[in-house]
């Protein structure tokens, strides 16, 4: 992969390494309906990959296949060369974390607690340790808390640790969800519309955050509708239409591809898919969906 010709990220240029996520021939059928058809995707270490496509193109369905929420009808997903079983928890343990299109925080927990839940799969205190509270438990609990606070500071929510998730502003909730996903120590993070419903300033902050996540050594996959955001951010973009990869390449290539424009303008109204992706520009509808 070469460095793209679109404006380079502010920090270091991406150092692309070995493939980390490989999806081969992922197909998802619901009854007679094929939502995702034979999609291949490779994500390399330290890379930001964008996934675009018109409404109902199967982006979120594909995401759900990757993260084990759906069991793909056909196809294999490997992470660092290991085939991952299609179970959400196994996927997280293997090192792939995600956020949700409609924010799914634990609303009545504080920000810090939300992130601490993310540490669950990287900690091991079981019943007896928790009841007896030996030194190991205390150490682990303190480490969990410290790491959670650190992550909150990383995403810029250091001061909101004790706020209830439900009371936080919309943009903060999105960032909190990212912090919670980061807490699972992933190698790869999947962001489902991280800027939906955000104003330009918040969007800018979000892209800065994604660059910083990438710079800390993670690979990132982003679904987004905001073209400018995606083309500024990503090293590589896949355009999905009707469940199939239409174009794949550098942002410049995809941006100038007539088929992409055609797909967005001409085929934007197809909704044979049950993928609940909202319309192109209306990120705000998700607030209502919650």
């Amino acid at each position: 992969m070469t460095v793209t010709d679109t404006p380079p990220p502010p920090a270091t240029p991406s150092t692309v390494g070995a493939p980390i996520l490989e999806a081969r021939g992922v197909t998802m059928r619901f009854g007679g309906l094929t939502a995702v058809k034979d999609v291949d995707m490779t994500v390399n270490e330290g890379e930001i990959v964008g996934l675009i496509g018109p409404n109902g193109a199967g982006k979120t369905t594909f995401f759900n296949c990757l993260t084990g929420l759906y069991k793909p009808t056909e196809g294999v997903v490997t992470l660092s060369g290991q085939v991952i079983p299609p179970k959400p928890r196994a996927v997280v343990v293997a090192g792939m974390a995600r956020t949700f299109q409609n924010i799914r925080l634990f609303a009545n927990m504080t920000a810090l607690e939300n992130v601490m839940v993310g540490r669950y799969c990287r900690t091991s205190s079981m019943a007896l340790t928790s009841i007896l509270r030996g030194p190991k438990f205390r150490r682990e609990e303190a480490a969990t808390r410290a790491r959670a606070q650190e992550l909150l500071e990383f995403v810029g929510l250091g001061d909101s640790a004790e706020n209830l998730a439900r009371n936080m502003p919309y943009g903060d909730q999105r960032r909190l969800e990212i912090a919670r996903a980061l807490a699972t120590d992933p190698k790869l993070i999947l962001l489902d519309e991280p800027t939906a419903g955000m104003n330009p300033q918040e969007t800018k902050q979000a892209s800065d955050l994604i660059f910083r996540i990438r710079d800390s050594g993670l690979a990132v996959v982003v679904i987004e509708h905001d073209m400018r955001f995606i083309f500024n951010l990503c090293d590589r973009v896949l355009c999905l239409v009707r469940g199939e990869v239409l174009v794949q390449g550098s942002p410049g290539e995809v941006q100038s591809d007539p088929r992409v424009i055609e797909a967005y303008i001409g085929g934007g109204d197809d909704d044979e898919d049950d993928d609940p992706t909202p319309s192109l520009d209306a990120g705000t509808t998700q607030e209502e969906q919650q």
Partner: peptide, 24 residues
């Protein structure tokens, strides 16, 4: 404890808890 937090997470949103690696 860790377990208690897991329980709250399950009560709040079972699917999200599972997707965050909680052994629901």
């Amino acid at each position: 404890s860790r377990i208690g937090r897991g329980w709250v997470a399950i009560r709040e949103d079972e699917k999200a808890a599972e997707a965050m690696g909680v052994n629901v």
